[in-house]
Structure formats: structure tokens, C-alpha cells
Design a protein around this nucleic acid. Sequence first.
DNA 1: AAACCTTTAATTGTCGACAAAAAATCCCCG
DNA 2: CGGGGATTTTTTGTCGACAATTAAAGGTTT
Lengths: 254, 254
Amino acid sequence: MNATAPKGRGRPKVRPQALAGQAPAAREKPADKEQRIYAAIVDRVMEQRLKPGTRLPEAALCELFGVGRTLVQKVLQRLAHDHIVELRPNRSAIVAMPSREDVGKLFEARRALEAAVLPLVAAHASRADYASLRRQLRKEQNAMHRYAQSEWAGLASAFHLRLGELSRNPMLHRYLAEIISRCCLVVALFQPPGNATCEHDEHGRVVDCLEAGDVAGAQRENDRHLRDLEAHLQLVEEDTDLSLADMLGLPGRS
Amino acid sequence: MNATAPKGRGRPKVRPQALAGQAPAAREKPADKEQRIYAAIVDRVMEQRLKPGTRLPEAALCELFGVGRTLVQKVLQRLAHDHIVELRPNRSAIVAMPSREDVGKLFEARRALEAAVLPLVAAHASRADYASLRRQLRKEQNAMHRYAQSEWAGLASAFHLRLGELSRNPMLHRYLAEIISRCCLVVALFQPPGNATCEHDEHGRVVDCLEAGDVAGAQRENDRHLRDLEAHLQLVEEDTDLSLADMLGLPGRS
DNA sequence: AAACCTTTAATTGTCGACAAAAAATCCCCG
DNA sequence: CGGGGATTTTTTGTCGACAATTAAAGGTTT
């Protein structure tokens, strides 16, 4: 028996993957431990380093973050509530894998919610808010032109997230944040690397309309933008059903 | 020392209140235990038997439902995420007490969300759906005319909830459900008993517009209905701050 | 060689235990 | 008689322990 080909019985051991970036050096407030773990996982999902379908065993997370299972379970519970992870009974939690139907409903909800948010933004936003929005927009374009995709993906999401924040409504902001993080998941799932949607400053046009007081126009532009985004997804899914159907439909010659 | 006036030291014992209706007779699926507890508490809040500010100690819930603290904590976590209960560090969880500002934001979010949902309802609803909606409406009116307030409150909420369901969008449905349950909380908090808002079939008019294909009209009617509802709240709050201010402002003569 | 059964380890579900924090009471002192 | 601490009790925060479930590999039979 050698190490490369374990011949022992039972289930093969899975090696805990590198996930946590920073180790907890000094003692921290006990209340924020949970938030730290939650944020760490969400960030990894948003920047697409944690791909959909990745298993998240509790024990591994415990070691990585240096906490007990109770904390990890609480975090997983919250992540599951936000549909970031999928929680199956008596099975490992996995990063959520939305189905094709889910994606349709997800974007439908996003369009509806952002359309509902825009009037509030127009009503509440001050000149300084628009200025900071423009600043963020420039950073975004900068990243896009540098082909820094992973960074750009985060910034593009941040724009929409900021819109939710500018609505000055905590609940709508939270809902939008949840939907956007799910959309990042979908992009990671359906968009092979390198295929970035080259957007021609669609965000900028939304801000233009907003600042000019044209709410309906902003809604129209944003709706079109989101539909573009959805349409550019490569709707192919490496499903087990598909391969099984192939194997059954064609009598294998090997 | 007698039982009516405990003179022992330390914190006085709190008696667990009657909360759980049915005892778990036979063994049930372990997966649904959590759902049962969650639903039980939400129901009590919706029917306003659990009033805002009521303390919910974990140990009491454990005894009442016959489960360990882990389960209870999971449920409380979920309830807190939905803003049904408020979870303060190292303190008992209490049924949420939204502030006056929260109420404004809450109704703002509700108006925005329902307005966003209505077009989807009009797009997806079949004739049978409208029929069942009408049936529900009649039950609601019946309860109103019988002055069965607690029942009516539940049915009135159920109407809006059903609208979310008819949008055929699980996310928007869930968000609306969360907002509506919070609104029930608010009504329980700001509306003294017996003061029911006598609505003149405002729900019916929404359905009329919807069935006639007049989405904008439905949105207008619903928006007005919700503003009415908010306006009828008695914006008085028996706050500890208020009574304290009273005591400090007026030199007591007793 | 394919299907079935057995074995084994991984993994979650749930619980009680212990420590820490907070609140209410009592005691002491002015 | 009132105020400030010490004390006790309650209550939550967190953890490891044990049982139950699931998945995977090995072995066996046809």
C-alpha cells in the first residue's frame, strides 16, 4: 500500500481545501466571529473562487476557522437561508447550484426588485451620492479595460448593490443583496472563464437617467441591461441526467 | 416565605408561558421538528397571541416543545433572520418591536414589492386562480361582518400573501411573506384591540382591475389600500423612554 | 464481468455540560 | 429611608460527545 493509491477500505479521506485566508491572530469579540466566517465564505463565492457544487463539510470549516461546529452550523444555516449554499439532510452542504428554471425566476425577481428600487433611489439620492456612484463607475470601467475579470465581476455587482443601498430602505437593500449574490453564483456556474460580457457603459446610462430625474428611463435601461446579462449566459449545464441519457440512448461501443 | 411572594435571593423565576398547543404524541421525522416549532411561533405571532416584546427564553421553549436547546436556537436564528424576533447578545430573545421609523420603511418596502409583484400576477394567473382568490375574498368579508377580528386579520394578510404566491416567483413570494408577517407584528403593536380598519372591499377592487387586465389600476388601488392601512395605525408607543420622560418632566406628586 | 451485499469511514443531527454575561435581589452603609 | 455594591440566579454562547445516516470501497456470487 502506498500513499498515492490508498487501498484501505471505507470511504476515501477528503483533504480539507484551502479556504480561510487569514488566521485569527489575536482574540476577537465573540460576537463577530460568526460574521467573519459568513463574510469569508460569501466573498469567496462572489469572487468565484468557491465554485457551485463545492462541498463544505462542517469539520473542515471548523479546523479552517478554528471554531466549534455550533458556530459553523449557524453560519451554514444563514447561508442556506440566503440560498448561497444548499443544505441537504445528512449530507455535506454544498455551494448552491441553481437550476435553469431557478435562473429564470431569479432574474425575473431581480428585474422586478431593481425596478421597484429605482424610484426610491431617485427620491432619496443627493448630489454627493451621484458623485460617489460615478466614482465607483470609473473604477469599474478601469478594471474592465485592464481585463481584470474577477475584480470587475465584483465591482459590477457592487454597482447594483449600491443602488439598493441608496434606496435608503434596509429591507429592499437586503433583498437585493441576496439576489445579487445569487446571480454571482449563476454567472460562476453558467459562464466559462474568459467570456466576459463587454458592456458598453450600461450602468452609466442608468445613472444618467436617474440624475436627470427620468425614473422611467432608468427603469427601462436597467431592465434591458439585466436582460442582456441573462441572455449572455451560456445555457449549457453539465448535468448527470444528460450524460446518463446519452449513455442510454446510444449503445456504447467501448 | 410563602409561594405568592417569593423572598429568595437572586433573579426571580419566570414561569414558562403556555405556548405549545399540541404535544408530540408519536415520534416524528427528525427533519420536520424544526419546521413545526417555527410554524407554531409564527402562527402565534400572526394571530397576535404572542405580543411584541414578549420574552422567549430558550429553556422555556425547550420544555414546551420537548427538544434540546440546539433546535430552539436554530429556530430562533431563523425567526431573527425574518425579523419576527429580536436577538440581543446574552439576553433573552423577544418578539420583535419595530420602531416607528422601521414601520415607515416597512410599509414603503411593502408598497414597492407588491407593486412589483402585481404585473407578474396578471401575467401568470389563470381563471381558476382568480376564482380561488374570489372565494378567499368572500371568506374574508364574512369574518369581517362577524366581527371575528383575530380571524379576519389572518385572512386579510392571507389575501396579500396569495398575491405573492400567484406571481409564481418563489423569491418574491418569500420576501412578501416576510414583510407581511412583520406587518402583522406592527399591527399588533400599534393597534389597540377592537379598532379594526373597516375596509370597503379594497381587496376586491384590486382583483377587479387585475382580472380586467388593468395592471396600472391594480397597482394604484393596492398602493392606496396600503397607505390607508398605514395611516390608520395609532402611532402611539408605550415606550419605557416615554414614561421615563414623563416621570422626569413632571415632578411627581405621589 | 456485472450486480449485490458487507464493511468502514465520513458526516450530520441532537443533546447535555461548562463558562461567561446580565439582571435582579439583598445587604450594608450613609 | 435611599443608594451602591456584592451575590445569586437566570440565561445565553460555545464546545465536545454520542447516535444515526449516508457514501464509498472491497469482497462475493452468479
